[in-house]
Amino acid sequence: MKAGKSMKYITVGLSAFILLSSNVVTVNATEIFTSGVPKIDLETIKFQIPTSLEPGAILTYDVEQEPTITYDTSAVDHATIKSKPNLLQAEVPDIEGRAAEDEFFKTVAESVKNLPVTDLGYDLPEPSPGTVVIYGSDGHINRIYQDENIGSKQAIVAADIPTSTVPYPGRLPAGTYTYGSGQKVIISAGAVTGEGRFTVFRAGVGGSGTVGSSNKVLGAGDVATKRQIDNAVHGTPITARALDTNIVKTVYKNDIGSLPDAVLDNYFWGWNNVQFGYTYSDILSFSGRYYYQF
């Protein structure tokens, strides 16, 4: 299942990552990407997590907090898996419903137009040994986590967990909350709407959703919302739409996460299946919006 590469090495601790168990390419500080992304200054990155990198980049801080960049190959690795045929119905874009939903989003926004707009910024932790950042297919951040094989858990800066010592706005007064590269969550008296990036997560990748690492049990159709803003009951049904494909689905909130640059994090739906019009990869991200009512 490994794609052939001309240059490869296995980094120390790679076995801890299912994600990084395939062949990888390392980049040094002077390499310039041919894709047009500017030269990456690893010296700067050493002390500050960049808000964007090349699509599919995996930024890992080693024991010395030196950043290395590799690339996700999960989609290619799993492209040959055809263990069973896709038995699910083909997804049908919901174009007719789009207009009514646009109206609903507009109504919600209108109802809070006189209320505060709070910009939460990027709210990224400072990197430490073992910090890993996964960048999505659009180059923005999908996930930040700690590889405990490289750095101790105590080194985690609590971007994920609001504590009384870390000032964190929660889902509070109605209003508009913006963060990251243009994520927006609106809380009105009757609904919550979110618009921005949908990202994905899978058990065994980045310590998420694994029975054993967190004792969470999740499946396709489960989503995580941003904990600092969105705290509905466990199991809340959410209506979610991929904006480019117009596929609408009912999903269920069964997890929360830091979601530094996304509005909804969708659990793995299988290598064979398409959801929201997309084939899964560990770095998938796409434009979407969701809502639920009280």
Partner: peptide
């Protein structure tokens, strides 16, 4: 959840 597609509208 896994069988919520089509028909349109």
């Amino acid at each position: 959840q896994t069988h919520q597609d089509g028909p349109a509208g």
